[in-house]
Amino acid sequence: MTLEEFRRLADTWGGDIERWPAPRHGEARRHAATEEGASILADAQRLDALLARGPDVTPERAGRVAFAVVQRIAAEDEGGLRHLAWLVPNWRPPNWLMPAAGVACSALIGISLATMMPYRQLDEPTSVLSAILDTGSMATSWVTR
């Protein structure tokens, strides 16, 4: 094996001789023991290290993607509710859950609508007037006239 061949093998296979084709190991080790050979291997190892540095994939990121997989599988199946069991192992939604959830949602919508209403029923006419003025419901030009 010439030094040029050794360099070509290092370029191809990297700086770890153990990953080179087995029949070339012996000759390669002899070259690696020389100053020039060691320098070639060191260059190849630097490139190896650079190539080996992968993108950082945090467990949180992997977890988010895994959760998205679960969601997609659940969405593809009918009756997605039963797939909530993915999130809580060994849990199965009881039969009464759907009607109860419907009633609860209706109640929540009713309460939120009631609290969003702008006026309450007031007893005195003056209270009604001040309520209108306070909320700016009357055009400004009416007031200044």
Partner: peptide
């Protein structure tokens, strides 16, 4: 193996 899958894909 999700980490592996994402890493290879990103590469």
């Amino acid at each position: 193996h999700m980490t592996l899958a994402i890493r290879v894909a990103q590469r």
